[in-house]
Write a protein that binds this DNA or RNA. Sequence first.
DNA 1: CGCTAACTTGAACGCCATCAATGCTTGTGG
DNA 2: CCACAAGCATTGATGGCGTTCAAGTTAGCG
Lengths: 250, 250
Amino acid sequence: MSPETKHGAGPAIHAVHPWTPGKPGARVRHQLLSDDERARLAKIASIIRLKKGEEIYAEGDEAEAAFNIVSGIVTAYQQTTSGNHVAAFLYPGDLFGLSEEGRYVNTTKAATAVVAYKMPLAAVRRTLDNNADLDVDVIIKLCEELRQAQRHAFILAQRRAATRLAMFLDLQEQLQMSRAEPPGEIYLPMDRSSIADYLGVTLAAVGRAFRTLTSKKIISLRDRQHVRVLDRTALGRLADRPPEVGAKRA
Amino acid sequence: MSPETKHGAGPAIHAVHPWTPGKPGARVRHQLLSDDERARLAKIASIIRLKKGEEIYAEGDEAEAAFNIVSGIVTAYQQTTSGNHVAAFLYPGDLFGLSEEGRYVNTTKAATAVVAYKMPLAAVRRTLDNNADLDVDVIIKLCEELRQAQRHAFILAQRRAATRLAMFLDLQEQLQMSRAEPPGEIYLPMDRSSIADYLGVTLAAVGRAFRTLTSKKIISLRDRQHVRVLDRTALGRLADRPPEVGAKRA
DNA sequence: CGCTAACTTGAACGCCATCAATGCTTGTGG
DNA sequence: CCACAAGCATTGATGGCGTTCAAGTTAGCG
C-alpha cells in the first residue's frame, strides 16, 4: 500500500487569509501550500491512522512531532481535577502539536477515525529554515488559530448556556461554509460531552440549551449529529445580542 | 549601551521560546530580535505616544499597520450590545494589529499612557519577504499569543468567579516573573471593570471574588492595584495548578 | 436482541446577574 | 488646604439560571 500517493501531494494547510480582503464575513479558506511545498513536506512526513478515541499525545509529553490532519476530527483538551477543558476541535487542513519550552501544552485524541501526517519537529525546523515561503504560510495559519482561540474565549464569556450554544452552532456553520462543505445542515462530529467541555458548561446544560433553541423554533434536530437552522435571524441575535434581559414579566 | 538604546534600537519582540526547554514552568521570555533586525524594523516604524484611554484602532477598520509596544499597557477588546469583551492585555514587547481579510478583528485602546512603534503593513510584509529569520521570530511570537488566548479560554471555562480571579492573579504573577519584574507583589495596571470584562463576570462579582480571596487569607490588598499572595498553595489549588512539589528541575 | 454508553429530563440548592445604595479616591477650583 | 464633584469600587437584597445528583430514555454495537 502506498498512502503517500493515495492521498496525493502531501500535507495541506488551509486558512483564511489575513490580509487579502474577500467578501466581508465570507472567510474563505484557501490551501496555502504549493505542490512543490507539499512535496517537500511529504518527504519528512509519515502517515498515521487513528481509531476513534485514540490518544495522539498527552499534555506535558516531550514534543517531538507536529501533525497535519488529512481526514477526521481531533479534539485538543486539557485534563483538570474538575473535568476536561476542550480547547479546540481540529479539522482537515489544521496543524497541531505546538509546544511550549519543548513540551506539548494539551492532550489530543481522535474524535472520529483520523488520518494525519506526522512530521518530526527537527525536520520541520530544518525545512522552515530553508523555505522562506513556508514560514509565511505558517504565520498565516497561526493567525487563524489565534483568532479561533479568541472566538472561543468570546463564546465562553457569554453568561447563558443557550447563548453559548447558539454561538457555537453559528461558528460551526461558518467553518463548514469556509471549508466548502454542503450547506443546509450543521454536522456535529463530536459528542455532547465534548461540546459541553468546549462551552464550559455541564452536559445537562447543553441538553437544556438544545431544548431551549428547539422549542423556540430556532433550530431543529434531525438526529444528534445534524442540526438544521430554522431561524437564522434569531440565532444571529442570540449570538451577538443579549437575550431578552427584561425580567419584568408575570 | 546608552540609556537611549533601549528605545532607540527599534521594535522588540519578547516571547517564551516554543522548543528550547527551560526550567519547567519558568516560562522565561526572551527578546527575539537581533540588533540588526531591530534596526531594519526601525526604518519602517514610527513612534506613537498615547494618553490613557486613547483608542488606537477600531474593530472593522481597514488594517493598515501593526504595532509593537515600547512601554505601557494596551487593552484589546470587542464591543457588544451586552458590554465589552476584553480579549487581551498587551504589554511591552507584544505585537498587535493582526487582521482578518484586511480588517482589524478588535478594538484597542491604551489602558495606561503608551509608547509604541507603528509599522505600515505593506512595509512589514516586504520586510518579512526579505528576512527569513524575522519570519521565525514572528512564528514564535504568534505561538505565544495563541497559548495566551487558550489560557484565557481556560480561565473563562471556570464556573466560580473566585476561581477565575485566582487563575487570573496566578497568570499575572507568572507573566510578571517572565518579564523579570520585581516579584513579591502582583501589580494590576488595569481597572476593575477591565478585569471583569476579561473574566466574563460583572464588576460586582469581581469585587466579591476579591473579598472572598481576601477573607480566606489567600491574598491581601495593599491598594487597588497591588496584590500580595499570602497562600500560594491555596491560590494554585483554586487555579487548578498541580501542587508545586519542589519543581526545581531534576 | 440484549447490553452498555450516551443522552435527556427532573427537582433542589447555590452562585452570580441585576438593581441600587453607599463608600472611597482622584482631580479641580475656590 | 479644603470643598466638592465625578468616577470607580464595594456592599447589600432578590431572583434567574446552571450545577448537582438522580432517574429515565434513546441510540449504538455486539
